Simulated assay, not measured.
Amino acid sequence: MVSEPAPSPRFFVLEKGALWSRYDVEVEQLEPVNHGVGTDCSRCGGPIGMRQWLPPYRVELVLHGDELGDFIEPTGHELLMSERFV
């Protein structure tokens, strides 16, 4: 008996849009900004990474385009996503 192979998972590549697209948004962090501790080098003790952004996440979205998109990349490595996108 031959079984069908399981379907492969689908992956999507998110490419950065062109500057000044219709979804252009600027993200400004609002006070208080909560940061955790960063990663330090085990040899020298110096910082080797960014500090983690901790909740509550407070930002102001400044719309420069026509409408908000489904994901916004603020500073650092965070990614804000709309509920619809998730």
Rank of each mutant, 00 (worst) to 15 (best):
L19H: 04
E73C: 01
M50P: 02
I48K: 03
E78M: 15
R84T: 11
S8G: 09
E83Y: 06
P74S: 00
V25L: 06
I72N: 09
P55Y: 09
E15S: 10
D40H: 11
V25G: 10
D24S: 11
Y57F: 10
L54A: 04
P5N: 12
R22L: 12
A6T: 00
P9S: 12
L61M: 02
P47L: 15
S8E: 14
V86T: 13
E78Y: 05
M1R: 05
H35L: 15
L61S: 02
W53T: 09
G36C: 06
L14A: 04
F12H: 11
Y23Q: 06
T75H: 08
S21I: 01
R22A: 14
G17V: 09
W53H: 12
E78W: 08
F85A: 06
G45M: 01
P55L: 09
Y23F: 15
P47W: 15
R51N: 14
L54G: 01
E67D: 13
P47G: 13
P32A: 02
D70C: 08
M1A: 06
S82D: 05
S21Y: 07
T39S: 05
Q52T: 13
R43C: 07
L19M: 05
R58W: 02
S21Q: 06
L68A: 03
T75P: 04
S82G: 04
N34D: 05
R22H: 09
V13C: 10
M50T: 05
M81D: 01
G76Q: 08
R10H: 10
S42Y: 07
H35Y: 15
S82Q: 04
G76Y: 12
V62W: 04
F71K: 07
V13S: 15
F71V: 04
D66M: 14
E73A: 13
L19F: 05
L14T: 00
V25A: 12
D66N: 14
G49K: 01
E15P: 11
E73Q: 13
D40E: 10
Y57M: 04
G65L: 05
E60Q: 13
Q52A: 10
P5E: 15
C44N: 02
G45P: 02
A6Y: 07
G65D: 03
A18S: 08
M1Q: 04
S3G: 08
Y57V: 14
G49H: 08
L61Y: 06
G38Y: 11
P32D: 06
F12S: 08
I72V: 05
D40G: 10
L14V: 03
F71T: 02
W20P: 05
E83V: 06
L80H: 01
